[in-house]
């Protein structure tokens, strides 16, 4: 409504409607609207969808993907990508199973820490190779995707660890709720919020955006690009490790193939959440909402009794729509900038 007014007068962007237009420009807006519409429509048609049990299932299913998407955002923002997260998750999940099988009395916090350190080591390997060899991370992490998966295969073989081997308290993390949220979801939400604050408010976090917007300029500006990119991979690995531990709590069996094929889903969640695939823009919160949306759509299509075979096709359409929306928004933004520049001359 206020857009035409600004368009005709448009001598001062500070006048009126700023907050409204600022809200409209949020990259997370389309995905949030999509999620709200989806939940409302499904809940109206099938009220069971929003029952406490239904909510809990929704959150539980989204938890792992939320963590992975948040970590992936950090990496994508720097113009990199990490395709090995599914394999890292698999290794850590199996490791968690092995630890509990060998020593059921190990404190859970310690296991979580071990898992995160394990993930961080694997992630820093990605970071090291990317930064040191100056090879695109797409290739490096495609390689480590296979290497980590192979290690997992060699370690696990045909063996699987089942929930029965793990202490009751560990499994309960995905059963008991606090504030209506399963505990593992609460952990994921807290981690995501910390990461979001880090990305928005801290110097290293802002540096990541600078690197993604223009690596050369970031270097000239005095940002230690290699170190920041390395850190992004390390943190992403740690988050994938945490996701792996939580996976072992949430799901019954962990084995050689746990988490395989997750990587593209994670990238898809980030893209749907408004993270630009070529770096420089996008937020952790957006990616997290993207992850929730992609998980919710499966549940809600089931609740709406849509043929299950259509679900993946719909996810595909959603991803392409998200990219199109992003493209339109950036075109409009570029046009605005051009017009503003033209007036200043």
């Amino acid at each position: 409504m206020s857009a035409p007014a600004i368009g005709t007068l448009n001598n001062s962007p500070k006048q009126g409607g700023k907050s409204a237009s600022a809200w409209l420009k949020l990259r997370e807006l389309p995905v949030t609207v999509a999620l709200v519409v989806l939940v409302v429509v499904t809940a109206v048609i099938n009220p069971l969808f929003l029952s406490p049990q239904g909510m809990k299932d929704l959150l539980l299913n989204a938890t792992i993907m939320m963590l992975l998407a948040a970590g992936q955002t950090m990496v994508i923002v720097t113009r990199n990508i990490d395709l090995s997260v599914g394999s890292i998750l698999g290794l850590v999940a199996f490791g968690t199973g092995s630890i509990f099988a060998a020593n059921p009395n190990m404190p859970i916090v310690l296991v979580v820490l071990i898992g995160m350190v394990f993930g961080a080591v694997l992630g820093s390997l990605n970071g090291l190779l990317t930064v040191w060899a100056k090879v695109p991370s797409l290739v490096i992490t495609l390689g480590t995707l296979y290497v980590f998966r192979g290690l997992n295969n060699a370690w696990a073989g045909p063996k699987q660890h089942f929930a029965g081997d793990r202490p009751q308290a560990f499994g309960n993390l995905s059963v008991n709720t606090v504030l209506g949220m399963p505990i593992i979801t609460l952990v994921a939400v807290i981690v995501v919020i910390i990461l979001a604050i880090f990305m928005i408010g801290s110097r290293p976090g802002r540096d990541l955006y600078a690197i993604g917007s223009d690596p050369e300029a970031a270097k000239l500006f005095g940002i230690n690009v290699s170190r920041r990119v390395f850190t992004a991979f390390l943190i992403n690995g740690a988050l994938a490790g945490l996701a792996g531990v939580l996976y072992a709590s949430r799901f019954n069996a962990v084995g050689a193939t746990t988490g395989s094929g997750l990587e593209l889903d994670v990238v898809a969640a980030a893209v749907v959440g408004g993270v630009a695939i070529f770096g420089g823009s996008g937020t952790v919160i957006g990616a997290t909402i993207g992850a929730i949306l992609l998980n919710t759509i499966t549940s809600s299509l089931t609740a709406l009794r849509v043929d299950k075979f259509w679900q993946q096709a719909i996810v595909g359409v959603l991803i392409i729509t998200a990219i199109l929306i992003d493209r339109l928004a950036s075109l409009r933004h570029a046009k605005n900038l051009r017009e503003k520049e033209g007036r200043n001359v």
Partner: peptide
């Protein structure tokens, strides 16, 4: 990269 991640899901879905 983004488009074909989308169509990867879409075509497999179809």
């Amino acid at each position: 990269l983004a488009v074909t991640i989308g169509t990867l899901a879409l075509f497999r879905g179809l």
